[in-house]
Amino acid sequence: MSDALLSLEGVETHIGRYHILHGVDFAVPKGELTMLLGRNGAGKTTTLRTIMGLWRASAGRVRFEGADIAALPTPAIAASGIAYVPENMGIFTDLTVAENMTLAARGAKRLADIDTARLEWIFGLFPALRKFWGSRAGVLSGGQKQMLAVARAIVEPRKLLLIDEPTKGLAPAIIGHMMDAFRELKRSGATILLVEQNFNFARALGDGVAVMDDGRIVHRGRMRELAEDEALQTRLLGLSLAAHQ
C-alpha cells in the first residue's frame, strides 16, 4: 500500500447541539479509490463535509499531504487540491453547462482557457456534456447533472476527489456508464474517496474500504476481502443493502 494522501485521526464533529462524528479514523492512500460505506445516517456525508471544512471538526486531525487542514477555510482546502462533489451535486442550474465548468476551472479566466485536451477527455467520459454544452444546467436530467458534477471536479487535475453518492437516483444503465467513467478516472491515476450505497458499484471499483456506523469507523480493509465475506457485509451494512443489490 502506498502512502496516505489523506488521513483522519480521531475526528469529532458536532452539528449544532448534535454530536455526529465520534472519533473517525481512516486513511486514503495515494492513487487508490477508497470506498466509504455505511447505512443511512451513519455519518458519511458529514465526514466528507468535515474534510472540506463545511463542518468544523471539534477534535482530531485531518491530514492532507501531511499538513493538518482541519482549521483551514473551505476555499483554502479546495485550493490545496481537493475537489468535492456533494450529495446534492451543487449544480448551478441558472448557469450553462459551459459556465459551470468554467467556474470549476479555477485557473481559467474564460471558457477558452480550459485545457482543450482535458475537455475532450471529459467529453469522452460524458458525451452528454458536449451535447448540452451551451444549455442551462437546470434542463439536464438527474443523471446528466451527476455527470456534470463529476466533470466539474476533474476539469483541472486535482490531488484528491471527494465524491458523495454519484449513483444516487440513477437508472441501472446510467450507473453502468458512471462505472466506466470511474474506471477511466482510476486509470488516470486519480486518488478518490467515494461514498456509495450501491454495493455492486463499490465492489467493482473500490481498492480500500472503510465502513461507518453511528459516527464511527467500524471496519477498515481491502474492498476485495469485504466483497468475498458475506457474513461481514451483513453484519456491517445490514441485510437489506447487500441483498437487494
Binding site: 472540506m52 463545511l54 473551505t74 479546495a78 456533494p86 479555477r106
Partner: peptide, 11 residues
C-alpha cells in the same frame, strides 16, 4: 444559488 458550492470550488 449555492454559497457552499462556490466555496468548495475554491473561491
Amino acid at each position: 444559488q449555492d454559497r457552499e458550492m462556490v466555496e468548495s470550488l475554491g473561491y
